[in-house]
Amino acid sequence: MNNLFKSRVALLYVMSISMVFSFSAWMSLLNNFVIEVASFNGSQIGILQSLREIPGFLAFTVVLAIIFIAQQRLAFLSMILLGMGVFLTGFFPTALGLYITTVIMSVGFHYLETLNQSLSLQWLSKEKAPIILGKITAAKSFTSLVVFVLIYIMMKFYSIEYKYVYAFFGAVTLVVGIISWIMFEHFKDDVIQEKKLKVKKEYWLFYLLTFLAGARRQIFVVFAGFLLVEKFGVDIHNMVSLLFVNAILNMYFAPAIGRFITKFGERKTLRFEYIGLIIVFISYAFVENIYVAYALYVVDHLLFSMAIALKTYFQKIADPKDIASASAVSFTINHIAAVFLPVLLGLVWLYSNSLVFIIGALIAFLSFLLSLLIPEHPNQGFETTLKK
């Protein structure tokens, strides 16, 4: 047991699982809770979702925070903050109350996600990173599965109120954060991290691919599920069933992606992902069969797991002391699209839902073109094929 608390990999698993445990519950319950208990209208849920994304956009402030507190301690604080935000959610079923608890939850979640990526790339060797990140992704999928089952049992068979369901999932993450702080060894940085916020020109390809990935993520998160409900009338039970299928497949698929990256490299993996996404988005635009739509939703979700390759590409090209700073910057870049894209594409949707997915295909195609610039063996000083 003592060896467990001296393992950096074990801590990465704990951070990832605890993060998914409370955030998946928060997201799963949100739409029903705000309508049934808080009596939200469309405008209020729009404001809440915008507030939720702002801390992601401000993830670069992690670099300012680690001037005063070590990354690992900040990660523990973020776990506690995430847990506290989820814990309090059900006890304040008003617009102002939910806005405040959402911001608390979101700051914890986005800081933890940023630090988790930063520490993963610092602590894992370049050879083992794809494999371990794939296994962690599988563990996160299994955790989501457990969350869905627990929520179903708690609310279907025991009729537990929303506030106590939220309190349970939030409390687990909060307590795990405190125990981790006390029990885990506080590891020293192998490389002292850069404490200044810098956008380095050497990483321009990584930043651009990250921005486009954020744009595609928004199209999937906001509009793919919406298409299933609006066009095909998919009910909540079938949507939950799809999430179950995604989680189960990801448990097996994510480790395989890690092995694929190790064998074939980031360039081939990302090209495969982008070509797959082009086909999926074009298919979304013209799909007329509900079972084909189901299949597209599942394949879409699996392809996004291949984003591990973008992280390991950055790990190979980055100066080790830049990883924390660049991870924070990339997380902010990833969320730029979240600030404006749903609103703009929502207007496009009113004109043509097919056009929204055609735009998604164009973004994926641009990503594919940029992936041609990734070297076969990227490393520091040889970040793109444009550099000789």
Rank of each mutant, 00 (worst) to 15 (best):
I275A: 01
V339R: 04
F365G: 12
A59Q: 06
Q117E: 14
F148L: 15
N3T: 14
S24V: 14
Q315S: 14
L249C: 13
F264G: 09
D235A: 03
A309F: 10
L96K: 10
T94M: 09
V221F: 07
T114E: 04
Y313G: 12
N2E: 14
K200I: 13
I363W: 03
S241W: 10
T114V: 02
L270G: 02
A65I: 12
V222D: 14
Y297G: 05
V165M: 05
V172M: 13
L373E: 08
L362H: 06
V329D: 01
I261E: 02
F314N: 12
F340G: 13
D190V: 10
D300A: 00
V329T: 10
H301C: 09
V146K: 00
E113N: 13
F57C: 09
L296T: 07
I333K: 06
S352G: 05
S120G: 10
F340Q: 07
I275Q: 02
Q380W: 08
L64K: 11
E127A: 12
T89F: 08
V172A: 12
S352Y: 04
F87S: 07
I80W: 00
M1E: 07
E376D: 14
V20S: 01
Y274G: 02
D319Q: 11
N379D: 11
M239F: 03
I17S: 01
S305T: 12
I336S: 02
V234N: 10
K198W: 06
I179T: 09
W204Q: 08
S159M: 02
V339M: 13
L205I: 05
N238I: 13
